[in-house]
Write a protein that binds this DNA or RNA. Structure first.
Lengths: 117, 117
DNA sequence: CACCTATATGCCTTGACAGGAATATTCTGA
DNA sequence: TCAGAATATTCCTGTCAAGGCATATAGGTG
């Protein structure tokens, strides 16, 4: 798993750009307009996203249209697959799952109520 | 989607810690040992991971055992769900998918070879 | 309590990164 | 070729985060 995708998504503006591109491709100017960013910073963020492989640019006349690239999202999904046993509670791992709960449950031993003032 | 999870995973050492905890919970010292980190930085990274909700600590005698918390991973999976149409090529969106390909295809117009010098 | 182990915290330095502003580049059309 | 629009790049600056190191805290055991 390339952790550059996390670096790219860690910035709030870049995250917004990705969320915007999920709906449909946008030009640089459209992104800057929709998100209230300035054009230079938008270009810079798009460069980071492109270097991380999340976005690819398609020249179209005077503009450059930003598209989401499917691959890193699929990679992220594949990576997440190895973590699914964490929340898909399998009964044969129930005891391990129970150990992940916060220990608010008192230890089942000699603990009668009112024992210690 | 809380983007703090991306910030937490963007650091390579924290990413390694998460990968290590996927197998089984580890104490702070074990993590530092397995990853070749110093103890203070390991504690700091675990604090970042805990604040981001990815990890929770369980005191056990002298040590504190770090566990992965299922919730943010499930949240990440839910968030990714909205991106699945990107790579699960649905035929009713094929034209949109084709538009994401690099435009190596020449525009079907008057482009005969050797036309200009 | 004294001592040891495990872990957390504080301070410092350094490097990376994001935003602002100005400017350079590229493309289009006449 | 020139003009104008869309986008990229450069330089500067402030901020933040990570690592190194020393030290504080907590928990366990005698």
């Amino acid at each position: 798993m390339n952790h550059h995708i996390f670096t790219a998504l860690a910035d709030p503006h870049r995250f917004q750009i990705v969320e915007l591109l999920r709906e449909r491709p946008h030009s640089v100017g459209e992104i800057a307009d929709r998100l209230g960013l300035r054009q230079p910073q938008t270009s810079k963020h798009l460069r980071v996203l492109t270097d991380a492989g999340l976005v690819h640019m398609e020249p179209q006349a005077n503009r450059r249209i930003a598209h989401l690239s499917p691959t890193p999202f699929r990679d992220l999904d594949d990576w997440l697959t190895r973590y699914r046993p964490l929340w898909e509670e399998r009964l044969d791992r129930l005891d391990d799952y129970l150990r992940t709960l916060p220990p608010e449950d008192p230890t089942p031993g000699p603990t009668e109520p009112g024992g210690s003032p």
